[in-house]
Computed example of a mutant assay.
Amino acid sequence: MALGAEHDERGALRVDGHNQTTVKGLYAAGDIVRGLDQIVVAMAHGAVAATHIHNRCEIADRGRGRQPLTEPARRSKVAPAHPSEAVPVQAVIFDVDGTLVDTVDLHAESWAATFRHFGHEVAVADIRAQIGKGGDQLMPVFLAEDVVQRDGEAMEAFRKDLYMREMIGQARAFPGVAELFRRIRADGRRVVLASSGKPDKLAHYKTLAGIEDLVDAETTSADAEKSKPHPDIFLAALDGLPSGEAIVVGDSPYDAEAAAKAGLRSIGLLSGGFPEAVLREAGCIALYRDPAALLAEYDQSPLRAAPAA
């Protein structure tokens, strides 16, 4: 169980203010040393590691004995920051990696291998805390500016090739993605994907999740000058729609930060492994375990309001 958390009679995970402060204190003590924009998680802290495991719904590493989610885990929800808050939206904008597909560890491992290939040793746990950013924002966290300028393009190309050859085949869609998209579209809303990844990777994930025909629009790194936590990708996803008529669903603090910079509210999913306190601090108005949990609580979620006229 996450630090200081308890389940109510419905199985919802609730964290009071004191316990959130406890978690924040652990991170302030050294687990996050560069702020939400440059988080470095020290997994040596057993309590933080336990929180990470709990947040991922006690799923074992995919491809290495992963266990399916239990029904309570699928339905369990973290209490929203503002339970009465509903958002009249015309579009729901989804992050992809860590939100719809279980790929955060795969990306962290691919970056570690890439850094190693170019002569830099960086811990997978430290890299993992940066996943959600594009390579343009991730590399400067660990490498000097001149190194990024000299080797950055070659490193990104190497990592993409490694990921597509050896790792993308291990990716799995989270439960309930297609069903959630159908529910959103049945309410007359648009489903938009906004990923820091490349178009070919996004196409694979859509097939994996069975959502090829359930997406109204999408943006990728090709549509943005800078990746998250900059707002470029979400601004492109809005495509002229007022920010008050859309909401973001993502798994990382960088999603929430980018959304806020674009004037968007955000719902956080714990499926990417980021602690509840970190997502709340980044601005998420409600938290759910995964897409299936958001679907199960849809009528009580910030998505429940009718679309804007």
Rank of each mutant, 00 (worst) to 15 (best):
K133G: 03
M164I: 12
F158Y: 15
G134F: 10
P140F: 06
H107V: 09
E166H: 14
F115N: 06
T103P: 09
G98N: 04
A112W: 00
G169R: 15
Q90W: 00
L162N: 15
R128C: 02
G98C: 07
A86W: 06
A157M: 15
A91S: 13
V148H: 03
D95S: 02
D161F: 05
V141T: 13
I131K: 01
A129W: 02
R116A: 15
R165W: 04
D151I: 06
A144K: 10
H120N: 00
A113D: 15
V148P: 02
A144N: 03
I131G: 01
V124Q: 02
G152W: 07
L143E: 13
G135C: 09
V147T: 15
E166V: 03
I93E: 01
G98E: 05
V89D: 03
E153N: 10
F142Q: 11
R165C: 06
P83F: 10
V89K: 05
H107S: 05
H107W: 07
D97R: 04
V141G: 02
Q137Y: 02
Y163R: 11
V87K: 04
G169S: 14
A108F: 04
A108D: 04
R150S: 14
F118W: 09
Q137M: 12
G98S: 07
P140E: 05
G169Y: 10
A113M: 11
L106K: 01
W111I: 01
D146Y: 00
M164L: 15
D95H: 00
V87Q: 10
D97Q: 08
A112S: 10
R128F: 02
V104H: 02
H107G: 06
E156P: 00
A112K: 03
V101S: 06
A108V: 03
M139A: 12
T114D: 03
Q149F: 02
H120T: 00
F94W: 13
D95C: 00
G135I: 05
G152N: 08
H107Q: 10
V124E: 10
D126I: 01
D146T: 09
M164R: 13
T103M: 07
V89N: 07
H82F: 15
E153M: 12
D136I: 04
I131E: 01
A112L: 00
R116D: 14
K160D: 10
E145V: 12
P140H: 03
H82V: 14
H120W: 08
M167S: 12
G98K: 01
R150C: 08
F115T: 06
V96A: 08
A86S: 13
E121V: 04
E156G: 09
D105T: 04
V96P: 06
E153V: 13
A91V: 09
A154R: 15
M139Q: 07
V96M: 12
D151R: 09
Q149V: 11
